[in-house]
Design a protein around this nucleic acid. Structure first.
Length: 424
RNA sequence: GGACAGGUGGCCGAGUGGUUGAAGGCACCGGUCUCGAAAACCGGCGUACCGGCAACGGUACCGUGAGUUCGAAUCUCACCCUGUCCGCCA
C-alpha cells in the first residue's frame, strides 16, 4: 500500500507508474476519487478537532465550577450538544477513511526506473545459464514419474482432488532431499536464519503482505473466524516482525523457511492441468530479506543469485527474466523470474519469482527500523523469492536428466541427500 | 472447553472519574566531572494525524471495539491475547 501522501504530493509520479503498468486508464478514476477523498478527509479532521478542543476546555471548566460549588448545568448541556456534533462529523470521517483505504488497496506498487514499461511482451531475458536439452525423445515428467513409481496423480486426485499430488517411494524421498539441499545451502552458505513457521495465518498477516483484501479468491480460508492456509511462506516469514521496530544493526535480515503452499488457482482452470506444473498444494523453500531502503536493488540481485545457486547446483539450464511493469506483481516494485527449461513439455517453467517490494509491504505490516538511536523509525524494504518451488524443479529434473533406458540421472549435489546416482 | 489472574511508553512498573501523555526506575541521547572510562550529578528522551515556511498550536492513542458521562487509563459490555490450574488431545 502506498502512503496517501503519494496521492497528494506525488500524483504525477504515481500516474506515471500506473501508465508504465498499462493500468492508468483503469486506475485514473480511483486516483481522482482519492484526491477528492483526501481533501474531504482533511476538512473533516479540522472541523472535528476544532470542536474537540472546544469540548475539552469546556468540560475542564465544568469540573472547575463543580469543584467550586457553582452551577454548571447550562455549560454541561452546551458541551453535550458539542459532543453530538462531533459524533456526527466523525461518522462521515469514518466513511471517508474507509473509502480511502479501499481505494488505496486498489493501487499497485510503482516499479523501479530500471523496470521496462508495458505488458509481458516487454519482459527481458537478462541472462541464461546452461544449455537447454533438445526435446527429441524426451518424455514429459508425468510419464517418467508414473512409470518410475515416483508420482501417483490418480490417487492424489482421489484423496484430495485434482491438483493434489502423492509422491511415493523415491519420489517422496526426492521431495525431502530437495528440502534439505535447499535449506542447507541457504543457511550454511548464504547466511539465512532457518525458520519453521505455521502454515495457518490470521487475516492481519494476509493483509500485512498484501494477499488480502485483493486476492481472497486465490486462497483457502478455513471457514472459521480467522484462519487461512498460506499461499507462500512469504506470509508468515515477512510478518514475523510485523508491528516492530528493528535496530539498524539487524539489517539486512535474512530468513528462510520450508513450507507447503496452498493455492486455489482460481481462474487458472484448463491451464497446465497435467502433471506437476500447476497444483493446489506444493512445497517450496522461501527466502525473505529486510533491508534499508538504499540497499533494495542490490539486495534483490543478491537474493536472486541465491535462488539461482540452487539451479546451478542441480545443473538445470535456466534463464532470468526481468519482468516488465505490467507483468510485475501488485505488491512488487521489481521482479526477476527464474525459468528452468523442461524439454519433455518443451517449456520454460517458472520456479522462482524474486521481488523487492520497497516499503509497500512494510507500510502495511508496519515493519520499521531505527537507523540510529534517537532517530525516527523508517520503513524497511522487504524482499522475497522462492528458492525454489519443488514441483516444477522435479518436473525439470525428470525431463532434463532422463536417460534412454527410462531412468533418471541424479545431479551430483543431490546424491548425498537422495542416496542414489540414478532413479530407476 | 472450564476456573481464576493479568494486559499501561523501548523495557520494568505506579496510577481506580477531572490541567495524567501518564509518577518512579532501567535503557538511550547530550553535558559536568575524569588522562580516559565507570560511578555520581544536571538536562533531554513516545507515536500518529491535522494546520503552519517555521517557531509552534491542536487532536488522538494506557490490548481491541462499543457504551455511560460535561469529562474515561480509571466505570459497563463484548471480543482478543498472555499466565496459572483443571479437562481433553498428537
Amino acid at each position: 500500500m502506498h502512503d496517501i501522501r503519494m496521492v497528494r504530493e506525488q500524483a504525477a509520479a504515481l500516474r506515471d507508474g500506473m501508465r508504465r503498468r498499462d493500468a492508468l486508464d483503469q486506475l485514473e478514476p480511483v486516483i481522482a476519487r482519492l484526491e477528492q477523498l483526501d481533501r474531504d478527509r482533511r476538512a473533516a479532521i479540522q472541523a472535528v478537532e476544532e470542536k474537540k478542543a472546544a469540548r475539552n476546555t469546556a468540560s475542564q471548566e465544568v469540573g472547575r465550577r463543580r469543584k467550586a460549588g457553582e452551577d454548571a448545568s447550562a455549560l454541561q448541556a452546551q458541551t453535550r450538544a458539542l459532543g453530538e456534533e462531533i459524533a456526527r462529523i466523525e461518522a462521515t470521517l469514518v466513511e471517508t477513511e474507509a473509502a480511502i483505504q479501499q481505494g488505496m488497496y486498489e493501487i499497485p506498487n510503482v516499479t523501479l526506473p530500471q523496470v521496462p514499461a508495458g505488458d509481458e511482451t516487454h519482459n527481458a531475458v537478462v541472462r541464461t545459464w546452461g544449455t537447454p536439452r533438445a526435446a527429441e525423445g524426451v518424455k514429459p515428467h508425468w510419464e517418467v514419474g508414473e512409470s518410475l513409481g515416483l508420482l501417483d496423480l490418480a490417487r492424489g486426485a482421489k484423496i484430495s482432488g485434482s491438483g493434489f499430488i502423492v509422491f511415493r517411494g523415491t519420489g517422496a524421498r526426492l521431495v525431502r532431499a530437495l528440502m534439505n539441499l535447499m535449506l542447507d545451502l541457504h543457511t550454511r552458505e548464504h547466511g539465512y536464519e532457518e525458520l519453521w513457521v505455521p502454515v495457518v495465518v490470521n487475516r492481519a498477516s494476509m493483509i500485512g503482505t498484501g494477499q488480502l483484501p485483493k486476492f481472497a479468491e486465490d486462497m483457502y480460508a478455513l471457514g472459521d473466524d480467522e484462519g487461512f492456509l498460506i499461499p507462500t511462506a512469504e506470509v508468515p516469514v515477512t510478518n514475523l516482525h510485523r508491528e516492530e521496530i528493528l535496530d539498524a544493526a539487524q539489517l539486512p535480515k535474512a530468513m528462510c523457511a520450508y513450507t507447503p503452499c496452498f493455492r486455489r488457482e482460481a481462474g487458472a482452470a484448463g491451464k497446465d492441468t497435467r502433471g506437476l506444473l500447476r497444483v493446489h498444494e506444493f512445497d517450496k523453500v522461501e527466502l525473505v530479506r529486510y533491508c534499508r531502503p538504499e540497499d533494495g536493488p542490490a539486495q534483490l540481485e543478491l537474493l536472486t543469485g541465491h535462488a539461482e545457486h540452487v539451479l546451478q547446483l542441480l545443473g538445470l539450464p535456466y534463464r532470468v527474466l526481468l519482468l516488465a511493469a505490467g507483468d510485475t506483481g501488485f505488491n512488487s516494485a521489481m521482479t526477476y523470474d527464474l525459468e528452468v527449461f523442461a524439454p519433455g513439455v518443451g517449456k520454460w517453467l517458472e520456479v522462482s519469482s524474486c521481488s523487492v517490494f520497497t516499503d509497500f509491504q512494510a507500510r502495511r505490516a508496519n515493519i520499521r527500523f531505527r537507523a540510529a538511536p534517537g532517530e525516527k523509525p523508517r520503513y524497511v524494504y522487504t524482499l522475497n523469492g522462492s528458492a525454489l518451488a519443488f514441483p516444477r524443479v522435479i518436473a525439470a529434473l525428470l525431463e532434463h536428466y532422463q536417460q534412454p533406458d527410462g531412468s533418471v540421472l541424479v545431479p551430483e549435489a543431490l546424491r548425498p541427500y537422495l542416496g542414489a546416482d540414478f532413479i530407476r
